[in-house]
Design a binder for these strands. Structure first.
Lengths: 330, 330
DNA sequence: TCAAAAACAGAAAACGATTTCTGTATTTCG
DNA sequence: CGAAATACAGAAATCGTTTTCTGTTTTTGA
């Protein structure tokens, strides 16, 4: 592959001149032409590695997340990448598999690659992670960092989302409601629980009426919890699944039990647009603004890189797709 | 951030010694200890950019694909990344959005980044793409490259998959079968059509009995085609949707029409494990070995990078998840 | 014990760009 | 027209590593 030296030689000028022309500094018209031609003739592509070394900026941002086989994350990456790419950055994706040790190793890897910034969905508690990341501009997605050095957070307004879901069900007359939550060790399940309970409290629903259960975020857990709730002596009349996997698991358990969401029981799901639309009747689901989250995270990171102060926490509103799975209790 | 020079200074040795120790060349015990300590004290992380420049190898492979918000692709990336990471490579992901111009630009970008190899799901015809990629070791996924320079291909055995689906339906007594295909401009739909027709021909089913339709790979197209088929004067007794999106669309159209796959009509879908399991009765679907495809693509690429000859085409077998959506025609 | 062999340390030259700084050509303007 | 100002070219330093090559130290073996 051609180097700038060869281009200079062919064009009959110095490497400095080639570099300047290519980077927009004015050079003599004749030289410009000669360089242009040499570049074309040799199909010269500047070596970004050498460039990065000299400018001590890699024009690369790292994206560190638990897994790639999850649309929630990949749709976010997609939006992140679109924004960054437009600004000339590339995206280095790393997977932690929800393993703190691995996460640490991948983070070190990214630092060796001299990334200019980081977008992370940390497995480690976000504040600890912030210490690990050091002075690297960092945006947390779906997590909140208490530390405020050079980092900000972008996530859905989980509290409001759950609050809304609760009101939706309460308005339809439900009081005995089952809520499927993710692991207490994560940030979002706590918010989602809090929002739901707040709405119930506001509408004077006794906590004893609710069946709030939590487990890991997985289809199996959703399935299990739903079956357990259905086996209760006093079955809930409505169900709220607070995440994509839990929603799938719940729907599976319901269909298996011959209960149609929206007929035998009222149901509100989370995130899975497709399942909501395919179901019959269509499900009511709360969807997170994934694209917006990604875009916002990328823009916040660019600002951080440009020296803006950190500490921001952006809560983006969720959307409620109303299907017909919430029925009035008569 | 600390440099090797500072480490050398602190350890009281030369940079060469530090470099050697860090790269596994034997150094005097005392020096090893001193370097070790200095590295820890300074939290030294070797600058991979400088390293890459000197070794003229970026230890990076590019992954170029149409989109990121599609589990088929991202699950492949996930497997690719797992293999590459274990060998010290990083993965640079680029999105073409199925736009040839954009694809070209992203490819140039990757070359400037001096990637050591490329895994691509090209939008451009694979053979043209091979010319673009030049002598870059390349593995095509889900496409076949006719050119055989430094490139190979990895994909599902689409022909066999369709052949199997056809037999499944024929064995159940179906002859009037609707087949939903993707765009004729892609490679895989052609294979899937061919496999299906071959099985039908073998079992003496007249082509006139079949309703083979094709459109883009999208939920809407699947929905539309299914509705059209259902409106036919002589409705098909079985349906085969040959891709994830088409499967979703078809199921949506069917449920909306009040037809239960496996009762009112027989149905075989593609790829969407989740939908298959959640449905009631569960759907029969053909699933591609995504993880295997990814792993295989990565390993093939590593071989190519190590100098192995290209030109290989790997067809990996699909799996049939038998649900209860195929009923015997009495 | 001493020469030959082996082991290792370190100075310096890469890698391929950018950028500074100096010096020459060109332009400006009184 | 000539001096001052400006524009531009190019040599060389630089970024942070690895690697070669030379030279010194240590070990080996008779």
């Amino acid at each position: 592959m051609a180097t700038i030296r060869e281009v200079a030689q062919l064009a009959g000028v110095s490497v400095a001149t080639v570099s300047k022309y290519l980077n927009g500094t004015k050079v003599r018209e004749a030289n410009a032409r000669a360089v242009e031609e040499a570049v074309r003739a040799l199909d010269f592509q500047p070596n970004e590695i050498a460039r990065g070394l000299r400018k001590s900026s890699s024009m690369t941002v790292g994206v560190l997340l638990p897994e790639l086989d999850n649309l929630f994350f990949t749709e976010i990456i997609s939006a992140v990448d679109a924004v960054l790419e437009a600004r000339g950055y590339s995206t280095l994706v790393c997977v932690s598999r929800s393993d703190p040790m691995r996460e640490q190793r991948r983070l070190d890897f990214l630092r060796r690659k001299r990334i200019d910034g980081l977008i992370a969905v940390p497995t480690t508690a976000a504040s600890d992670f912030a210490t690990l990341a050091g002075d690297l501009p960092t945006v947390f997605v779906d997590r909140v960092a208490s530390a405020s050095g050079r980092c900000s957070s972008v996530l859905s307004d989980n509290f409001a989302a759950s609050y809304g879901a609760a009101e939706e069900l309460i308005r339809a007359g439900h009081t005995r409601i089952g809520v499927l939550l993710g692991p207490d060790s994560n940030y979002t399940p706590l918010e989602r629980r809090a929002g739901f309970l707040a709405a119930c409290a506001f509408h004077g629903i006794a906590e004893g009426d609710l069946c709030v259960v939590s487990d890991e975020y997985s289809v199996e857990a959703g399935y299990r919890m739903t079956r357990d709730l259905l086996a209760l002596p006093e079955k809930p009349t409505a169900l709220f699944a607070t995440n994509n996997e839990l929603t799938i698991g719940a729907v599976k358990a319901l269909t298996e039990a011959g209960i149609v969401p929206g007929e035998g029981i009222s149901f509100i799901g989370f995130d899975n647009r497709t399942l909501a639309e395919v179901s019959h009747p269509p499900l009511t689901v709360i969807v997170q603004p994934v694209e917006e989250i990604g875009r916002c995270a990328a823009e916040t990171l660019l600002d951080l890189i440009d020296g803006a102060p950190g500490g921001k926490i952006l809560h983006l509103p969720t959307e409620t797709l109303r299907g017909e799975s919430v029925k009035k209790l008569s």
